[in-house]
Design a protein around this nucleic acid. Structure first.
Lengths: 216, 216
DNA sequence: GCGGGCCGGATTGTTCAACAATCCGCTCGG
DNA sequence: CCGAGCGGATTGTTGAACAATCCGGCCCGC
């Protein structure tokens, strides 16, 4: 899954933020939706002031856009945003593959993820496949062992989910990249980091172009 | 400079955030300093509730740590944090150099920055040299043209400033890397991206080790 | 003297009610 | 048809209040 661990959530404002984050992540609050302070506050059972703190958190994560005196809206990624996100992923993910430490534990986890994705492809479970794909890329970026880098990647992936929510999901889409991810993993297991990075970049470019094409 | 443009700052809460950001960035609020809600609110002339929103923003940028029922404190980067930050920079900056578009405009700006740093070295202006060095690395990361990537880098650089504030500044420190940056630029101007990336990684590793050594 | 438990003050987390500023939709008049 | 202006609704911000929690110091028994 994507939601980080929050063992307690004693704080009402952070609890609300994680709640809203989940609702956005699984499409319950689609891109473009307006989050009225009063109604959301009533729904979550917190005060308007406390909710505003949560909104500030989500805005910092760019999951939500705050327009002064207008309100907060779930971000609607544009074509330019897609280009921007993939430009970032190209750098971060290739770099992680090329210069990160790919130990056996990591390769093992990657293999599990790839297998899960391929299984989901067989059973036609699109949601599982999408999650596994995201998990694959996230795990790649965990290779350098930098929490800063990984949290930046998490931010990017959160916005990627918004992109997916904006399009009519073609089941074929994730299936193609499940296969490509398997190829990347194979290269990694051969110790061919450079080749893996190249395959990864090709895969990212293809995905970007496909998404752009479908956004007009 | 480091502070992004905020032409208006109509919002009191974002105004306070940029104000605090600047105070932290230039050391007026040193690492470890406690930010009392009441006193800071009085100082900035805003209400406690509004200030809390600003704190949430700064906490999301990890410039500040929020400890429940204890208060917010300017972050004190640890040795582990330094390792973490440099691991991220290694990936992001090398990747930007290797796969970003280094057009002439960018190279021109880099040259200006390097010259400014070398001038500052001659005149012994440490602050200008430090700023120029940060600007150099930031400009490198602007090469791929991704706002997401650049904002992630900005977050990293903000924490780097905290690291510098924590140590007694050795004038020699920044001077050494001004020279190394010039070498990286020279490689870039030769069109030797791979070599530039290698030089950059070496430079980052050296800086990291030097900082770690001085932190014990 | 010293360690441990307890109390009181101070600070944070949260709520509520209010008000100013701003925006949106609508009506009215040209 | 189009623009000006009005009214309602929403956001931005404040101040006061209260509960929860933490910190420092005090007292007590050993």
């Amino acid at each position: 899954m994507s939601t980080p661990q929050t063992h307690d959530d004693a704080q009402a404002s952070v609890h609300a933020a994680t709640r809203l984050r989940a609702m956005i992540s699984d499409g319950e609050l689609p891109p473009g939706a307006k989050l009225s302070e009063e109604s959301v506050a009533r729904t979550l059972g917190i005060s308007r002031n406390t909710l505003r703190e949560s909104f500030t958190t989500l805005a910092a994560e760019t999951l939500v856009v705050r327009i002064p005196h207008r309100g907060v809206f779930v971000t609607e990624p544009s074509a330019a945003d897609v280009r921007d996100l993939y430009a970032a992923r190209r750098i971060i993910e290739s770099g992680a593959v090329l210069w990160g430490e790919m130990d056996d534990a990591l390769l093992g986890r990657l293999r599990e993820i790839v297998c899960a994705a391929l299984d989901a492809k067989r059973t036609g479970d699109v949601a599982v496949m999408a999650d596994a794909n995201q998990d694959f890329h996230r795990t790649l970026v965990s290779a350098p062992g930098s929490a800063s880098l990984l949290s930046g990647m998490d931010r990017v992936l959160a916005r990627m989910r918004l992109v997916f929510h904006m399009m009519a999901e073609d089941p074929q889409f994730h299936a193609r990249y499940a296969v490509r991810n398997a190829e990347v993993l194979a290269a990694l297991e051969d110790g061919a980091g450079e080749r893996a990075a190249q395959l990864l970049r090709d895969s990212l470019t293809a995905a970007r172009d496909e998404l752009l094409h479908r956004l007009g």
